[in-house]
Amino acid sequence: MYRKELYVFDRDRPVPAVIRSYEERDFPGLIRIQQESFPPPFPSELWWNREQLSNHVAMFPEGALCIEVDGEIAGSMTGLRVDFDPDHPDHTWEEVTDHGYIRNHNPSGNTLYVVDIGVRPAYRKLGLGKWLMSSMYEVVVHSGLERLLGGGRMPGYHKQAAEMTAEQYLNAVVKGELKDPVITFLLRCGRTPLKVVENYLDDEESCHYGTLMEWKNPFFNPRSGQGE
């Protein structure tokens, strides 16, 4: 089980926080995070339900993290292990996460795949998403995995879709010519883009595209197949 105590900052004021593995008692708070983080037009049927959350806790508790601020649950991040082949990268979110139920979790997989990350809007000025991401990097290193991987939404793309392809939009974000709420955040967290995937997620704002973004374990030893 994971637990880390730290301070986050509301401007210059330190605020106590805890990042830890989430449990059944947290399920109502986790569902509220989804509802507040992904309002319409994001499909409400993609918000967590109790069966999905139960699977996360039972099948891969190391990949089920939440963050509390002053005792209030404010954000969460969930992952599973998969065996990723960079030569065949294309997939959809539903395929790789089993529609969020993670029954396809592979305890021997080489990659920690991000199922979801969300922070309640009232807490976003505290940098909680970056703290959750760095904590999941620690899980990758501790588990000796090759990488962290996930498909980033591109919610700003619908505003540019008439003028550019999804690949052109990603390149503009990477060059700093455009800013995307999700892709720019992932770049700030140290993730790097692999490729754009069509029909990755039912998401009108992203025109159903997603960008595969990875973080490679700097301690991974390809000769031994695990972290040193």
Rank of each mutant, 00 (worst) to 15 (best):
M1S: 10
K4I: 07
L6A: 07
Y7P: 06
V8G: 00
F9E: 13
D12C: 09
V18R: 01
I19A: 02
R20A: 03
E24S: 04
R25P: 01
R25Y: 08
P28R: 01
G29I: 05
L30P: 00
I31F: 08
I31M: 15
I31A: 14
E36Y: 05
E36W: 04
S37N: 03
P39N: 02
P39A: 04
P40C: 05
L46I: 10
W48G: 06
E51R: 08
E51P: 07
S54L: 05
N55D: 10
H56F: 12
V57L: 14
M59S: 09
M59G: 10
E62Q: 11
E62L: 12
A64S: 11
I67M: 04
I67Y: 02
E68C: 07
V69Q: 01
D70T: 14
I73R: 03
A74V: 04
G75V: 00
M77R: 02
T78K: 05
T78R: 04
T78W: 03
T78C: 07
G79P: 02
G79W: 00
V82E: 00
F84I: 06
P86A: 07
D87Y: 13
D87I: 03
H91K: 12
W93G: 01
E94L: 13
E95F: 06
E95G: 04
V96W: 03
T97G: 03
T97S: 14
G100W: 00
R103P: 03
R103T: 10
H105V: 09
S108F: 10
N110I: 08
T111L: 00
T111Q: 01
L112Y: 10
L112T: 03
V114H: 03
V115P: 00
D116W: 11
I117E: 03
G118Y: 00
R120Y: 11
R120F: 09
P121A: 01
L126W: 01
G127M: 11
G129K: 01
K130L: 09
M133G: 00
S135V: 07
M136W: 06
Y137M: 13
V140P: 12
V140W: 09
V140S: 09
V141F: 11
H142R: 15
E146F: 10
E146W: 07
L149I: 04
L149C: 03
L149G: 01
R153Y: 07
M154K: 07
H158Q: 12
H158F: 15
K159M: 15
A161C: 10
A161K: 15
A162D: 09
E163F: 11
T165L: 06
N171A: 15
N171L: 06
N171R: 14
G176W: 14
L178M: 14
V182S: 00
I183C: 12
I183P: 01
F185M: 13
P193Q: 05
L194Q: 12
K195G: 08
K195Q: 15
V196R: 07
V196L: 14
N199Q: 14
D202V: 15
E204W: 06
E205L: 11
S206I: 04
T211W: 10
L212Y: 12
E214H: 05
W215C: 04
W215H: 05
W215F: 06
K216G: 03
P218N: 08
P218S: 02
P218A: 07
F219Y: 11
F219V: 05
N221Q: 15
P222S: 08
R223W: 15
S224V: 14
G225S: 06
G227P: 02
